[in-house]
Simulated assay, not measured.
Amino acid sequence: MKKRSKLNNLLFCVIIVYICFVFGKQQITIKNIKSQIDEKNLEVEKLKEKNKTLQEEVDMSKSDSYIEKLAREKLNLIKPGENAVINNTDK
């Protein structure tokens, strides 16, 4: 009877140790997943901010004043009656 009792106690201890091991491993996995979720949420927030900035640029590019500014800068266009001033600061 004592051998059987010792065997049962040993088996019980092994099962408890196994359960603790599995529980610990799951906790580590959960912690890693939560960390990844936090990283992805931060990335989403950054992308939303970038998207907002780009959307503002798109909206601005549709305005007449922006188109006029680009025409003046890139194409060197001037309005009738204006005098063109060339700034040669590049040396």
Rank of each mutant, 00 (worst) to 15 (best):
I15R: 12
T89R: 15
N88L: 13
N83A: 09
L7H: 10
M60Y: 14
K91S: 10
K62G: 07
N41Q: 14
L11M: 10
L7K: 12
I19W: 01
V44I: 14
K25G: 02
P80V: 03
L54N: 13
K25I: 03
R72S: 02
N32G: 07
Q36C: 06
Q55W: 03
I30N: 08
T53E: 13
E49G: 02
I16Q: 01
K52C: 08
N8E: 13
E45S: 06
N76Y: 05
F21G: 06
L77D: 12
N8G: 03
D59Y: 08
N87H: 12
C20I: 10
N8R: 10
T29R: 11
K2S: 04
D38W: 05
K52R: 15
K69Q: 15
S35T: 09
V14K: 11
S63C: 06
V85G: 00
I33T: 09
I16Y: 01
Y66I: 04
N32S: 13
I37L: 10
D59I: 03
V58T: 02
A84I: 15
V22L: 05
L47S: 00
D59M: 05
V14H: 13
V17M: 10
Q27T: 09
K40A: 11
F23D: 04
D64N: 07
N83P: 00
A84R: 15
E45L: 03
D38E: 15
K6A: 07
F23S: 12
E43P: 00
D90W: 07
I28Y: 09
K3C: 01
C20W: 04
N83D: 05
V22D: 01
Y18N: 12
L7P: 00
V22N: 02
L77M: 08
L42N: 09
E68N: 11
I19D: 02
C20H: 06
E56L: 12
S65E: 15
N41M: 13
E49C: 01
I33R: 10
K69L: 15
F12C: 05
E49V: 01
C13T: 08
K3F: 02
N41Y: 04
N8I: 06
L77Q: 13
G24N: 05
